[in-house]
Design a protein around this nucleic acid. Structure first.
Lengths: 240, 240
DNA sequence: GTATCCAAGCTTGCATGGAAGATGGCGCGC
DNA sequence: GCGCGCCATCTTCCATGCAAGCTTGGATAC
């Protein structure tokens, strides 16, 4: 059957994927993860490993192993003898996710604010740069740009905390909520509130007041949650 | 070698209590996880999948897939074409781990304190019961009992927060630090301080003061960290 | 028309073989 | 003695075969 593909995959145009140096398992993991993030695999869709393997031009084994990793990440569920189920997010999942990021972002901000002066100031400067990018995107009505800059701000905050475990956890959580974030980006009012709150977080970090940074980050995430969850409920989005 | 027994056992209906519902992968995962927790697989040990498969009486495939899950949990590292490395914990890992539990326990306590009256009081009562068990163990010099009750307290705190993602994260973190906890159990002074702090957490939850609960839980974990990390450094434990 | 049962076709779980990469030891040149 | 390259061996990676479980659709009995 499918003879090993030495290079690109001529059978599947469009989703040109994976010129990764990694193993086939890594390729399959990256491709599936990306497909789920970008919703080319719709939530609720039940795929067969065989079919995915065919599409990716490999055998079932690497797809199966990638599915295990994705299941561990909370993105899919492998149903024994039935296939791979792309998980959907219910409003309750968003509540869970927000609790985790409230805790994580808060602790990260606290940690960054407790860094030595030079690192702390550099971090605050980097954060401010992201915030300015958000403001610019907001001014020009560039919604996707706003979302990217917002994500960059929070990614930088976590990264500056220098905690690999926290980074991994937040990364996994972000993967899970990425689709919801994209969907709700167009629905949210008050993008300017986020910008002001980001400035407060960066300011507290610059000042080195750890408890103020903790509080600012927590308040920011909590307000975003209180803004978003009712939106989801009102739209009757049972799963997304 | 052990012939793999055919699954199910149609000849004996209902007799033997509960053949494990799990697949071989689950068996392998449970066995390896337990072996790592209990340090029968020493950290730093490099095992071959073949060897583990032989020991567990199965083929390489389920062992390999279990290893992927364990790697995702942060317990091992599978080195391509070299084998499975049992991960060791450096003091810096303990710092990371404490940051995560500080964030998680704090948020969990806050959430539980914000529960409706009846659930909140029931939770506080359950927590107090665990604390009393700790006190009793402490009084009778039962160190392992103290450790178990302490673990039960924190597990209950997280469970009461009703957040599956938080539970999973804390569970994974606990698996990683289990060995260190067992080791340091005998070294820690001031077990009574933990008991008093647990009482403060439960009291704040009973009172329904979320911010006090958050603070109490954070302070508790931070003090424990400040007590433990110097101990590890002083003992020169580079990895454990 | 409706309910029931059985078989066929789908799916994955697991074992195994071939191939390729990594490693350590051994011999060779100096 | 010392360094270097080569090969034997050990390891995983991936493809594939077989069997078992689940679902479904059709045939049959009433």
């Amino acid at each position: 059957m499918a003879r090993a593909r030495p290079r690109g995959d001529p059978g599947t145009p469009g989703a040109a994927e994976s010129e990764k140096r990694g193993s086939l398992v890594d390729d399959a993991y990256a491709a599936m993860r990306s497909a789920i993030r970008e919703a080319s695999f719709a939530p609720g869709y039940q795929a067969s490993e065989q079919e995915i393997a065919l599409r990716l031009g490999m055998s079932r084994t690497p797809v199966h192993e990638a599915a295990i990793r994705l299941q561990e990440d909370g993105l899919v569920r492998v149903l024994p003898r039935k296939g791979i189920l792309i998980l959907a997010l219910a409003p309750d999942d968003m509540r869970e996710i927000y609790d985790v990021v409230i805790a994580m972002d808060g602790r990260a901000a606290e940690l960054v604010a407790a860094l030595p002066d030079d690192e702390r100031l550099a971090a605050a400067q980097a954060l401010d740069a992201h915030t300015e990018a958000m403001a610019a995107a907001h001014a020009s009505g560039d919604l996707p740009g706003w979302g990217l800059a917002d994500a960059a701000f929070h990614a930088a905050l976590i990264a500056q905390a220098r905690n690999g475990r926290m980074s991994r956890i937040v990364q996994a959580i972000n993967d899970q909520s990425h689709r919801a974030r994209m969907l709700t980006l167009t629905l949210r009012p008050r993008l300017d509130a986020s910008i002001a709150e980001h400035r407060r977080i960066a300011q507290a970090i610059r000042a080195g007041t750890a408890d103020a940074a903790l509080d600012a980050a927590r308040q920011h995430r909590m307000r975003a949650r209180d803004e978003l969850l009712p939106l989801l409920d009102r739209c009757g989005l049972k799963h997304l």
